[in-house]
């Protein structure tokens, strides 16, 4: 069953001098539980596509239907609430709140969702244990390595119970060892918890782990391959 349905998606950046078509008539379905990599060279439209799927950017035309809701039709406030309850984000440079501990960063989204305190505490512990950071719960970002910070970012993305997690170049700032650890952890979460991951990358190590690879070039899908 498709969790994301993208129909005739177009994104044109209307600059002062030149018009740039970043996404050119993309049609795509992503099913629940997929572990999908969107790959392509720089400027191919990977981040633009992910931003639109995540409701951070609006398309010029076309629709993005997530769980029967066309998010291109939602108003700004509705879109913020939709993101809070349905989409998890992992960014290239971790983007944790530096004044909060790993546990506080993880529970932050659930607090925004106004969940019960006991549930928040329980879920925070469980997720941080799953990502291998039970010993670092009370550490602040500056007391953790890049790999650990990115695992907290994944934990935060998972905490809200999203329909899928978008990860934009999640391993770009990590060394080989930490990249391996992060990918193994994400794959485990995908298998164990059935979480749908969509990540953009041009890192071969990530591409090799993906179950489905979508290749973008000049804003168009030129290849969509599912591994057996």
């Amino acid at each position: 069953m498709s969790v994301i349905e993208i129909r005739d998606l177009v994104k044109i950046y209307d600059g002062s001098a030149v018009e740039v078509t970043a996404i050119d008539n993309v049609n795509l379905n992503i099913d629940a539980g997929e572990f999908t990599a969107i790959v392509g060279p720089s400027g191919s439209g990977k981040t633009t596509l992910l931003n639109m799927i995540g409701g951070l950017d609006s398309p010029t035309s076309g629709s993005i239907i997530i769980d029967s809701v066309d998010i291109t039709r939602l108003k700004s406030k509705q879109l913020i609430d939709f993101r809070l309850n349905n989409i998890g984000f992992v960014f290239q440079s971790y983007n944790l709140i530096p004044v909060l501990t790993a546990a506080e960063n993880t529970s932050f989204v659930m607090e925004l969702q106004k969940r019960e305190k006991s549930l928040i505490n329980e879920r925070t512990k469980s997720i941080l244990t799953d990502v291998g950071l039970s010993a670092k719960m009370n550490s602040r970002p500056n007391q953790m390595s890049g790999g650990e910070q990115q695992r907290v970012a994944v934990a935060r993305a998972m905490a809200s119970g999203p329909k899928f997690i978008i990860a934009d170049e999640p391993t770009a700032n990590l060394d080989t060892k930490n990249t391996e650890k992060l990918l193994d952890m994400m794959e485990e979460m995908n298998e164990k918890r059935g979480i749908t991951f969509i990540f953009s990358t041009h890192d071969q190590r990530v591409i090799s782990k993906a179950h489905r690879i979508i290749v973008l070039e000049d804003g168009r899908i030129i290849k969509d391959e599912k591994k057996q």
Binding site: G54, L56, K77, I80, D81, R83, L84, N85, G88, F89, F91, S93, N95, I97, P98, F108, V109, L112, Q113, R156, S160
Partner: peptide
């Protein structure tokens, strides 16, 4: 700026 962008992205609304 980046942190505020992240907060808005993960679902922190304007009033918060």
């Amino acid at each position: 700026g980046k942190e505020i962008g992240m907060l808005m992205a993960i679902g922190m609304n304007r009033s918060k």
